[in-house]
């Protein structure tokens, strides 16, 4: 997994709360394996981005000038609620988004971002709103995320501290793989399973 340390990128504001993963990637695009040619980047927010004839909708932020090159999203509360589809993360990543800043996230989507080396940043509602206001006022402005320092620096140079679980932080910084971490503990796992199934033989 690619480590995540710092990121300075154009940020795009998305105003809506409760952006569900059906919006991030509609279900009809979930049939493809992820590969260089799968086109996940074009599926991102597909039905918010394109009309029925496949033309860009001009009112959607990623279709407007410099926001097209966004590497960070600043969203509303409960981003990524709903379906567990990891295709939502593939679409974000393949578009070039490596971090989403929001007041809160759907639990499964939050885990899916972490699993793919994306950084979900949780900041209070009013700070997220302030960031979105700045970004709307200055299209193409960048935000800087510093994971070691746990800060997001806004367009005016103010650094907003965020919290993240230390275990998640370490995994992102080092690009650690969960399976590798498990296999280090093989003996302990086998001992556990032996005892557990001895007490519940019908589950073995």
């Amino acid at each position: 997994m690619t480590p995540f340390t710092t990121l300075t990128a154009i940020a795009a504001p998305i105003e809506m709360a409760n952006i569900d993963t059906d919006r991030v990637i509609p279900v009809r695009f979930l049939r493809k394996l992820r590969s260089d040619k799968a086109g996940y980047e074009t599926y991102l927010f597909h039905d918010m981005r394109f009309d029925n004839d496949g033309r860009e909708k001009s009112d959607f932020v990623l279709n407007q000038g410099p926001y097209r090159k966004a590497g960070i999203l600043v969203a509303g509360a409960n981003f990524g609620c709903g379906s567990s589809r990891e295709g939502a993360v593939y679409a974000l990543l393949d578009y070039g988004i490596r971090a989403v800043i929001a007041p809160s996230f759907g639990d499964i989507h939050y885990a899916n971002e972490l699993q793919n080396g994306m950084l979900p940043v949780t900041l209070p509602e009013e700070i997220c709103r302030g960031l979105r206001d700045q970004l709307r006022a200055k299209p193409g402005a960048t935000l800087s995320i510093d994971l070691p320092a746990q800060t997001v620096t806004d367009t005016e140079g103010t650094a907003h501290p965020f919290t993240i679980d230390p275990v998640y932080k370490e995994r992102l910084l080092k690009g650690l793989d969960d399976i590798g971490l498990v296999l280090e503990n093989r003996t302990g796992i086998e001992r556990f399973e032996h005892d557990y199934h001895a007490a519940r033989p019908w589950l073995a």
Binding site: E86, Q115, D178, V182
Partner: peptide, 12 residues
């Protein structure tokens, strides 16, 4: 879970 955690469960 998403696909990555599912993979972890299948593997371990």
């Amino acid at each position: 879970t998403g696909a990555s955690q599912l993979k972890q469960i299948l593997a371990t």
